[in-house]
Every structure is written in C-alpha cells, then in structure tokens.
C-alpha cells in the first residue's frame, strides 16, 4: 500500500512539474480541465459519448489481460468493427437513396451487430496468429492495427469516397435517420451508454462468479500448469480474443452510428489505447473500470481547454494519463517485489 500511495504522490508531483514547465499553474490547469469537461451540457455529453466506447474496450481488455494477453490490436478491432458497420449501413441505405431498405432502427441494430462481428474477426485473426502461428499477440495486434487503418483509408479514398472528392476527411455522412438518438442536443447516446454499462456488468460477473472467468485467470497466471491440469488453454485464449474483439467492434460501430456518423480514418480516436491504460491502472479488476474510465474520459474532453483557454498543447493530457499509469505500474511492481520480502 505504501509503495502504491508513494508512487501516486510522485506521479502527481511530476505532473505538476510538467505543467509548470509548460508555463502554467497546475491549479489553473485542473480547474480549466474540470470546467471543460463538466461546464456545459454539451461537454458532459461528450464525456459520456467518450465513456461509452471506452467502457466497451476496457471491459473487453479485461478478458485478454486476465488471460495473460496484451491485446494491443484492440485499435484495429475497433476500426474493423467500424468498417463492418459502415458496410451494412451502405448496403441497407445506398448512397443517394431517399430511404433505407430496412426500417432505420433495424438498420442501426444490424450495423452494431455487424460491428461486433467485424471486431470478432479481427480479434480472432490476432488470436489465431498468436495461438497457432506462435506470433507474439503484441506484434500480431499492432500489425493488424496498421492493416485495419490501411483498409479504412483505402475505402475512404477509393470505393467509399464522397462524390467527386478524394479526401481523408471521411465518407459522406449517413442520413440523419441512421444517427443514434441522443440525450437532448448533446452528443451522448443512451444506447451506447447502456451497451457500455451492460458489457462492463457482464464482465464483472463473469470474472468474479463464473468458472469461465476462473479458468481464464488460471491460463493467465500459468499457461502450462493450467494446460496440464486440464484447462483447454487454446480455447480460453481464443475466447478472450473473441470477447475483446466483440466489444471493441461494437465500440467501433457506435463511433460510426453515434459519434461521427460516417467512417473516418482515425475512427477509433485512440480509445483502444486509452482502454489499455484504464485496465492497466485498475490492475485488470473490472470493478474499478467505471470510475477510472470516467476520469479518463473527462480528462480527454477537458483537455480541449488547454489550447482554448491556456494556449497549451492539448497532448499534455496524454502526458498526465501516461505518468499516472506508469507510476501505478511502478508502485505495483515495487509492492510485489519488496512487499513480499517484508512479509518474509
């Protein structure tokens, strides 16, 4: 405990130092970022709109982390989910058509399902490369991230480009009937939030109360031992990729139907990487995901105030997030290493 608190305090001091070095007062920065995240209904809406896919990604990553896998491919799984969702939207509501072939709510639902399937495909691909090809899941995932982004760029530039335009700013926006409904005029969509919360709730139950969760942790703790004891390790690993891909793909679909209303090259908005940080910070324990993900979403949205009111670079918020996670990991490492020695 001492090490963790100490590490947290050091990270705060360092963050303060970075802020001071960039020419601002830490108190002002915190104040502005808070007011930038919660000052208006629009801002709260954006925080919630960011929180929803982040919850999905973080929940998915709990499975892979607990299985001892570092699923850096989560970004690609979001992107491929978004591509699959866009494909379904384009098939059911061809460009220029006045109405969808199916009722809009059904079209949106199918797009979200397609997003999940797309994410699963991309997740299983990374899983297969890892399990059967003996390729580190980190490199398989990173490679597949590039591939997914490449496919998105190709589609945006090629077959799905806006009429007469070849620009990386994205495809033609979908008809407003295919946008997910929002809370008032904000960008937060109840459907996305509910899906995020359901994914998280399921994850908490599965990890704590099921045999599946237990076996997953066993595989994560010691792959060989669990195999010897009769746990079907390969199946567990692939299941983890399956579930993480599913959640990330749904998150990608929600980015399309709920946030951007079109496919853009960076459709994942780096939320997958943010999810990795969240899950590492909570030590893979899903019960703490909601508050931490909420905090990171607020930091993400509030950081727009840095250039807006303080003339600071908004990537400073990335440094803040990074330092928090780095020191949380160092604190945990020290606690594991020296905490035990003290016990002895």
């Amino acid at each position: 405990m001492l090490y963790r608190v100490g590490a947290f305090v050091i990270s705060l001091v360092l963050i303060g130092l970075v802020v001071v070095l960039s020419g601002a007062s830490p108190i002002t920065v915190i104040g502005r970022m808070l007011s930038g995240a919660f000052g208006t209904a629009d801002q709260i809406g954006r925080v919630v709109a960011t929180l929803s896919p982040l919850l999905l990604c973080a929940a998915g990553l709990v499975y892979t982390f607990n299985a001892g896998l570092y699923n850096l491919g989560v970004e690609g799984q979001i992107t491929f989910g978004a591509i699959a969702a866009t494909l379904v939207l384009r098939l059911l509501h061809p460009e220029g058509a006045s109405a969808s072939l199916a009722p809009p709510p059904l079209t949106i639902a199918l797009a979200i399902v397609a997003g999940g399937i797309g994410g699963v495909l991309w997740g299983l691909l990374a899983g297969a490369l890892h399990v059967y090809g003996r390729i580190s899941e980190i490199f398989a995932g990173l490679g597949l991230n590039f591939a997914a982004t490449g496919i998105a760029i190709y589609l945006i530039f090629g077959p799905w480009k806006r009429p007469g335009v070849a620009s990386l700013s994205g495809t033609q926006p979908f008809d407003e009937s295919l946008w997910l409904g929002t809370f008032g005029q904000t960008e937060a969509t109840p459907v996305a939030l509910i899906l995020g919360l359901i994914a998280l709730a399921i994850t908490i139950v599965v990890m704590r109360n099921t045999y599946f969760g237990l076996r997953l942790r066993a595989v994560g703790k010691n792959l060989r031992a669990s195999y010897v004891l009769g746990v079907p390790a390969r199946r567990q690993l692939l299941s983890a990729f399956f579930i993480c891909g599913l959640f990330a793909g749904v998150a990608g679909a929600l980015q399309v139907v709920g946030v951007f209303h079109r496919l853009i090259p960076n459709i994942s908005s780096n939320l997958g990487f943010l999810g990795l940080l969240v899950v590492m910070l909570v030590n893979f324990d899903p019960r703490w995901i909601l508050p931490v993900a909420f905090f990171f979403s607020a930091l993400n949205i509030g950081s727009l105030q840095l250039p807006l009111s303080l003339g600071l670079e908004s990537s400073l918020s990335g440094v803040i997030q990074g330092l928090l996670v780095l020191f949380a990991l160092i604190g945990r490492g020290l606690a594991q290493r020296y905490g035990r020695k003290l016990e002895h």
Partner: peptide, 14 residues
C-alpha cells in the same frame, strides 16, 4: 516493457 513502450509512445507524440 509494455507500459514503458506505451508511455514512450505517448510522450513521443507529446
């Protein structure tokens, strides 16, 4: 290793 690489990435982008 992972944490350091993620953070290096973040810091580098900053």
């Amino acid at each position: 290793v992972l944490a350091v690489s993620v953070l290096l990435g973040l810091l580098a982008s900053a």
